[in-house]
Amino acid sequence: MATFLEEVNERIKGVPIQACYHCRKCTAGCPVAFAMEYNPNKVIKMIQMGMRDEVLNSSTIWLCASCETCITRCPNEVDIARMMDVLREMAIESKIPPREKKIAKFHEAFLSSIKSGGRINEPMMIVNYKLKSRDYFSDMGMGLSMFMKGKIKLLSPRTKDIKSVKAIFEATSK
């Protein structure tokens, strides 16, 4: 059986993460590191040590904002942003309950909105997110003010050939 490290590297399909020499440039430039449970370079070490559960259960993988600063600055071209995507996918596949539930629910609401309309209908997506996350009250002010300013259309046009979009979702779901 492949080790956790081998599995992650296999999915990243790029520079093996053990090329990291822990200069911490990625962590220094990461806009979200202050809120992360484990810093980006620490996650690499943990993967090398086979700490699968700790990594896949961590908040770090959900908090990464995919800003790509880390990969852009890493002297060894270790693609941490891609690594975070891979870890999130692995956590979802292993049905590990996401540590940052609201963020996971946001992605679900977003994707299900595309699946049903081909395009994101922002008000519908936000309602959907609110229902899924049970986060009913925050942001009412913002939503309302955008609504009043005529930004949010109740009916944005959908993709006509919605079947082709649904087919993509079917074919890419594991």
Binding site: S66, D85, V86, R88, E89, I92, F106, H107, F110, L111, I114, G118, R119, I120, T159, K160, D161, S164, V165, I168, F169, A171, T172, S173
Partner: peptide
């Protein structure tokens, strides 16, 4: 013609193949 959503961050953050296919 008849464009659809690009998948934005939510696709690539959770499903690589979907993030290329959309």
């Amino acid at each position: 013609e008849d464009w659809s959503c690009c998948g934005a961050s939510s696709a690539h953050m959770t499903n690589f193949k979907l993030s290329v296919a959309l």
